[in-house]
Amino acid sequence: MAALPRRIIKETQRLLQEPVPGISAVPDDANARYFHVIVTGPEDSPFEGGLFKLELFLPEDYPMSAPKVRFITKIYHPNIDRLGRICLDILKDKWSPALQIRTVLLSIQALLSAPNPDDPLANDVAELWKVNEVEAIRNAKEWTRRYAMDN
């Protein structure tokens, strides 16, 4: 395996030394480009109290290409589909090599605080979020309790 670029080493060091509040990102023992991520459900969101597992992978051409991120824990969210794929502009066309793993994780945390049903990935969830927000939030809380707590 090719030597790890300085940029990745630096980012990893900083993530471990000054972690983002509510987020832990630890590189895999066997592969320094693979991170085990845990995001705490933000306060005052239907995901509050939950711990959400994600996987983050830095592709060969990182940072010219965006990291690949996916939820492993099931989550009821209009911008995250059943496979855990995330609809987030900075992970696609709005990616910039000047962005970092840290910024990506912060953006994902922000997405949990403010779901955006107008730019949906999970269509049925987004639909319910638009027509009946109360019920959608109830579902999200239920899923959080069932899949993201004490496991």
């Binding site: 670029p5 300085r6 940029r7 630096k10 940072p63 090599p97 000047a98």
Partner: peptide, 10 residues
């Protein structure tokens, strides 16, 4: 003079 590049941090 040397500068740090914001992308590769070298």
């Amino acid at each position: 003079m040397r500068i740090s590049c914001p992308v590769c941090v070298s």
